[in-house]
Simulated scan of single mutants.
Amino acid sequence: MSRIRARFWDPTGDRYSIPTYPWQMAPPHLLTLRQLAARRLRPGGQGVQAQILWRSTRYGAPGVRAAYLYDVRFALPKRAATAAQLAALDKANAARRTCPECKRDAGYVLPRHLGICLDCAQEVAA
């Protein structure tokens, strides 16, 4: 194991206070939120069980990065949205697409910096 990987190897949680693993070395039953979502699961009230740490050389964000892990054995299925929740979401999205100037559905979410549809913005600019 390389020095960098050994630096982040702490399965007992002595050094980092929670179990910590290097990139791609976590046990298979520990998953990130995205991995749980891909399996149509949610954490289900459990706290963070472990973390993955890795050194990042990403431009603008160098340093150590972390990903939090949850135990798939305690995960619950995702809840389905009710009809009322879906209707409220549709209404909210329709309001974000309706231009206050011409009162029509633009077919896209209006840019917040303009507050009106692109056609009306061009007319105002001309």
Rank of each mutant, 00 (worst) to 15 (best):
S2K: 03
S2R: 10
R3Q: 08
R5A: 14
A6N: 07
A6S: 04
A6T: 08
A6W: 03
R7Y: 10
R7K: 10
D10H: 08
P11C: 11
T12Y: 05
T12F: 05
T12H: 09
D14L: 10
Y16N: 05
S17E: 08
T20A: 10
T20K: 12
Y21R: 10
Y21W: 15
Y21D: 08
P22M: 12
Q24D: 11
M25V: 02
A26V: 15
P27D: 06
H29F: 14
H29E: 14
L30N: 00
L30E: 01
R34T: 02
Q35P: 02
L36S: 13
A37M: 10
A38Y: 08
R40S: 09
R40D: 10
R42Y: 03
P43K: 06
Q46D: 07
V48G: 04
Q49G: 02
Q49D: 09
A50L: 09
Q51I: 00
Q51M: 05
I52H: 00
L53Q: 14
L53A: 04
W54R: 15
W54C: 00
W54Y: 13
R55N: 04
R55A: 04
S56P: 05
S56T: 14
R58H: 07
R58I: 00
R58Q: 06
Y59N: 07
G60M: 11
A61T: 13
P62L: 01
P62V: 05
G63H: 06
V64F: 02
V64H: 06
R65D: 05
A67V: 01
L69G: 07
L69Q: 02
R73W: 02
F74N: 10
L76Y: 06
P77Q: 07
P77Y: 09
P77A: 06
K78S: 00
R79K: 12
A80I: 09
A81F: 04
A81T: 03
T82F: 03
T82Q: 06
A83H: 02
A83F: 06
A84E: 15
A84I: 10
A84K: 14
Q85R: 05
L86I: 02
A87R: 12
A87Y: 04
A87F: 03
A87E: 15
A88C: 02
A88D: 14
L89Y: 10
L89D: 12
D90I: 00
K91W: 13
K91E: 15
A92V: 09
A92P: 04
R97I: 08
R97K: 15
R97P: 07
R97G: 11
T98P: 12
P100M: 01
E101H: 09
C102H: 07
K103T: 13
K103A: 15
K103I: 04
R104Y: 04
D105W: 05
G107A: 11
G107M: 13
V109H: 13
H113F: 12
L114S: 04
C117S: 03
L118V: 11
D119Q: 07
C120H: 11
C120K: 07
E123P: 01
V124S: 14
V124R: 15
A126P: 01
